[in-house]
C-alpha cells in the first residue's frame, strides 16, 4: 500500500516534469511577497514566536500520555476496578502539570 501510494506521487511528479513547459525567468522564480521584492529575513532566517516551540513540547508530553493510555484502554475491562484508580492517579498527575501550564499562561497566545 505504501509502495503504491508513494509510487503514484512519484509518477505524477515525473510525468508533470516531462510534460510541463519549462520557461523560467528571474522574476518568475522570485519568492512571493505580494508583488514586492523580498526583503528582510526569508524562510528559516526569520524569527518566530516561542509559542510554537512550547506547543510542540506540550504535544510531546501529552502524546506520550496518550500512548500510555492506549494499552490501558484496550486491557481495561480485564483489570477493573483496580485499573480505574491507576488511571485516575495518572490523569490527576497530568492535571497538575496541565493546571501549571494554564496558570503560566502558556495557552493564552495573547
Amino acid at each position: 500500500m505504501l509502495l503504491v501510494a508513494v509510487g503514484i506521487g512519484v509518477l505524477a511528479v515525473i510525468v508533470s516534469a516531462i510534460l510541463g513547459p519549462k520557461k523560467s525567468s528571474r522574476a518568475k522564480l522570485m519568492p512571493y511577497e505580494s508583488g514586492n521584492d523580498p526583503e528582510g529575513g526569508v524562510g528559516t532566517s526569520q524569527r518566530f514566536p516561542v509559542h510554537f516551540y512550547l506547543v510542540a513540547m506540550l504535544f510531546i508530553v501529552f502524546d506520550i500520555e496518550t500512548a500510555f493510555f492506549y494499552p490501558l484502554a484496550v486491557a481495561y475491562q480485564k483489570l477493573v476496578p483496580f485499573a480505574f484508580f491507576e488511571a485516575l492517579t495518572f490523569v490527576l498527575l497530568l492535571l497538575v502539570g496541565y493546571v501549571y501550564v494554564l496558570k503560566k499562561r502558556v495557552l493564552e497566545w495573547a
Binding site: 505504501l2 501510494a5 508513494v6 503514484i8 506521487g9 512519484v10 505524477a12 511528479v13 510525468v15 508533470s16 516534469a17 510534460l19 510541463g20 513547459p21 519549462k22 520557461k23 523560467s24 518568475k28 522564480l29 522570485m30 519568492p31 512571493y32 526569508v42 524562510g43
Partner: peptide, 27 residues
Amino acid sequence: SIFKEDLTVTLADKLVYTLAPILAIGM
C-alpha cells in the same frame, strides 16, 4: 495541472520541496 509549468523558486530546498507533496499523498 499535469501540463502546467512546475516552478521551483530560487531559495527553495530542491529535494525537500519535491519530496514533501509525495510524502503527503503517500501517507
